[in-house]
Design a protein around this nucleic acid. Structure first.
Lengths: 215, 215
DNA sequence: TTGACAACATACCCGGTAGTATGTTCATCA
DNA sequence: TGATGAACATACTACCGGGTATGTTGTCAA
């Protein structure tokens, strides 16, 4: 069941297109990105894109899916570890944030996709394709909701509305996709330090009430 | 120096265009919003838009500015109040969040504008117009940075990097523009309760270290 | 060697959109 | 009352971008 050379080449070409598309979508947004832009950034032409993807919407959906796959793979291993909820949450959150930083372009595309869905995007056909991925996203979100509830049961987290809290947490954890830019001479430790600050902030938010209102 | 009826009518017409444009930009983003869309949502045609605004970019910039004006007016009064930094910060943050909810469409446009700037938007001409508003935004941000530093001096806030913390805080405080939608039968108290949860979360994040790492 | 197919490139069509140029209407004012 | 200009609407142009139809080239299998 190993892939032949041809398929490997083909998949690598496809992966290159996905990378380039992710960068373009990040740089200009979905609507403002033309297929020619993506092709040009590859030194190619539209023909190459349309040979692998039937439409711009499908290309975008593929980028979305790739981004979510990366997330899921990174976080999933930490979900079932034993131990207190807080530790488990920190492991998941840290993995998530590092993914945001490491695969920023894809994660921005995911963000754009979620935004498009919230609006009620375009044609019904691609809406169904998006919905499938939104479900994917929801399942991912569910991993965090679960540990949030466990943390509340254990008394380490304090929050009122789970949905709102989940939104706030993800806004904080996702935020590097907007403001992070690599610095020259940046080490892995620097990046991990940034991630730690983000996770610390979110953790503080989840404990929120604890810190105050001891009146 | 009072305005004549004509100018009042003109300004009201202009304000209606701004509102409609803000809604369209929120619903579809900048690139995907056509001038015809805005005109149609007003029951008018392009002629009306181009009579008041020389270009699509200028229309957007005007929406951006209007949104920032609303923010500034809402938060400014709380900046110079005496008392502890935490109280001042909570007053500012609450006012900010309520603005996000009450003028969501304009605030989404502000967000889009900031995103466009981070990318390096379009033509040099409108880039300068955007830059001016980004400065405006920075001055607004500065109001919060100031109180954050004061809070740290007073020992109530704990954070490492001011820039990152500021980003994280604003991500949390701004987040309602993405996930808030008015519910039927929602009272003002309900909205204020949502705002409180958001502010609580952000406050917890700003105190962060305090709650943990007592090792 | 050849034919078949993958992996593109080229050339083209066409709908939508920013922007313009030109009416049209109505109020105001000399 | 007639003229003037504001506040639009209408009609039009030019261009760009998604999508398609068709060529071209290299590779592999029989």
């Amino acid at each position: 069941m190993t892939l032949g050379v041809k398929e490997q080449v083909s998949d690598s070409s496809r992966a290159d297109i996905l990378k380039a598309a992710a960068s373009c979508f990040m740089a200009r947004g979905y609507a403002a990105t033309s297929i020619d832009d993506v092709a040009r950034s590859l030194g190619a032409t539209k023909g190459r894109i349309y040979h692998h993807f039937p439409s711009k919407a499908d290309l975008f959906v593929a980028v979305f899916r790739a981004g979510m796959d990366l997330n899921y793979e990174a976080v999933r291993p930490h979900c079932d570890l034993p131990g207190p909820a807080l530790e488990r949450w920190r492991a998941m959150a840290t993995a998530h944030v590092l993914q945001m930083i490491d695969t920023k372009a894809f994660q921005r595309a995911v963000w754009i996709g979620v935004e498009m869905h919230l609006r009620g995007a375009t044609t019904p056909q691609q809406r169904t394709a998006l919905n499938e991925l939104i479900d994917y996203r929801s399942a991912y979100s569910q991993l965090f909701r679960k540990v949030l509830l466990e943390g509340r049961d254990e008394g380490v987290f304090n929050f009122d509305d789970l949905s709102i809290t989940n939104q706030l947490m993800f806004m904080a954890l996702n935020s590097p996709i907007f403001w992070y830019t690599p610095r020259m001479g940046e080490t892995r430790a620097d990046i991990e330090n940034i991630a730690r600050q983000v996770v610390d902030f979110a953790e503080g938010g989840l404990r929120s009430i604890q810190g105050k209102r001891h009146d």
